[in-house]
């Protein structure tokens, strides 16, 4: 490639440095530091010593002889462990949502890719359509649908069943995730599947493969890159969501995203702990992504073998 044309990537690299690398470093810095109290002689104070000084000066108007300095600490990262159940709960719900998205999205994407070009465009637009509306509004609408006196229960009431308790359950949270992130599963699957030529499938059929065999040995392996990127694109936002669980989970199903939100906009304002939780979440997502990547790589080899 022309050496000069590499400069075209410059703006994005600059963008990435300012808005990706620098914030990441900042999160790291926040996660491993804390504001610790020091006395006049630059001696670090323990909680008890600080409390004693505060008590001593409580009656006077004098300023406390205490200064705060930013120091390195492992405490933030260690205290994240008490929130691990929340992280696993979020991951579990996100995993269920991802699986449902895959089950719903896969057949749809396959048949969509076999449609005539004009129908393909129409279906594609219909899938994108909900995303033209605001995310918050869509989730709010589900709240009205699922409520005790909501539309779904009213319709059930007409045929004499229910009312069912739907809102404020984990099921409602999963539903919200599936609804909001389904397009992110369908679109990458669809774009990979349009590249699977009908000839390939016909060749398999000519060689005597039944429809199940064609599906498991040809279609699935060839669509593996789409599956992998679809899983990543659904799982990652789903695991860190906070507004869906707040609206549809009634605040009782706190997810890791809510917990991070609480550290920054809650009463305690603890950006250090918030950054530490974010960091752990990031490592966790990285782990999950490496698993899906393996899924992808494992089958590139197969693809090679097949061709």
């Amino acid at each position: 490639m022309n050496r000069k044309s590499r400069w075209a990537a410059g703006p994005y690299i600059l963008w990435m440095i300012i808005f990706v690398i620098v914030p990441l470093v900042l999160i790291g810095v926040f996660a491993f530091t804390t504001d610790a109290p020091f006395d006049e002689n630059s001696k670090r104070l323990t909680q008890e010593e600080l409390a004693a000084i505060e008590e001593e000066y409580a009656e006077t108007d004098e300023e406390l002889p205490v200064t705060y300095k930013t120091v390195f600490t492992w405490d933030n990262i260690l205290s994240v462990s008490q929130y691990l159940p929340v992280l696993f709960n979020s991951a579990w719900l996100a995993l269920i949502a991802t699986a449902i998205c895959l089950i719903i999205g896969y057949p749809l994407a396959y048949f969509m890719s076999r449609f005539r070009a004009s129908s393909q465009r129409l279906v594609q637009m219909l899938i994108m359509l909900p995303m033209w509306m605001n995310f918050l509004l869509r989730t709010y609408a589900w709240m009205t649908l699922l409520e005790k006196n909501g539309w779904i229960n009213r319709i059930f009431g007409l045929i004499g069943v229910g009312p069912f308790e739907m809102i404020n359950t984990q099921g409602a949270v999963v539903l919200g995730m599936v609804y909001n992130y389904l397009p992110f599963m369908i679109l990458p699957l669809y774009s990979v599947m349009t590249k699977i030529e009908n000839h390939t499938i016909e060749a398999a059929q000519d060689l005597g493969a039944g429809s199940i065999r064609v599906f498991t040995k040809v279609v699935i392996p060839l669509s593996m890159p789409g599956i992998a990127s679809g899983i990543t694109m659904v799982f990652v936002p789903a695991v860190s969501t906070f507004i869906i669980s707040r609206m549809l989970g009634g605040g009782t199903n706190m997810l890791i995203g809510d917990l991070i939100d609480l550290q920054f906009l809650g009463n305690a304002y603890n950006p250090n702990l918030g950054a530490a939780i974010s960091l752990v979440l990031m490592v966790f997502i990285l782990l999950c992504m490496s698993i899906t990547n393996q899924l992808d790589n494992g089958d590139e080899e197969m693809e090679g073998k097949m061709l």
Partner: peptide
Amino acid sequence: KQIDKMWTDIMTNTNT
């Protein structure tokens, strides 16, 4: 911080 910790515990413990 104590209040926030207790609150988070109340909000997260059950259902898990």
